[in-house]
Amino acid sequence: MEARLLQRELMELTARVLEEGVLDKQFLEIQTLRDEDNPNFPAEVVALFFEDAQKLINELTKALQQGQNYVDFGKIGADAHQLKGSSASVGAKRITDLCIAFRGFCDQLNVEGCCGCLQQLHYEFSLTKNKLESIFKLEKQILAGGGMLPGM
């Protein structure tokens, strides 16, 4: 049966993404909050995260591009803190870890450290987004084929 193959593929993909440390157990926690009435709950929360994270990364990029002479560490520290919270809520582990490092550089008033972290954030965000989109795409296919998803 195709649904069963897709379900196995989804299980393997999720396990791989967890093993790579892109996502952590919080993502599984979100999946358990899905039920028949809210099959798209994980995708909805993650969509809010994408939006929030993209906005914050843009803010950070703008703040660090404005010249290295003046960097508002209070502002970028607060943005990084917010991104840390959002990413932790959906289990985007690598982004959370980068935000912790970023805040450390803010405390040290280390512009280079912040810029390095921001570059990694750009990279990890697009990677995390890709992986999550693959997971949700598979889920959609499974649902369309009449299959069940984790948490249902």
């Binding site: 979100i30 909050l33 809210n38 709950f41 909805e44 929360v45 809010l48 995260f49 929030d52 917010q82 919270g85 959002s86 809520s89 959906v90």
Partner: peptide, 11 residues
């Protein structure tokens, strides 16, 4: 945070 509101509401 709207993300956390959505999460806590569901929980």
């Amino acid at each position: 945070s709207i993300i956390d509101r959505k999460l806590i509401e569901r929980l």
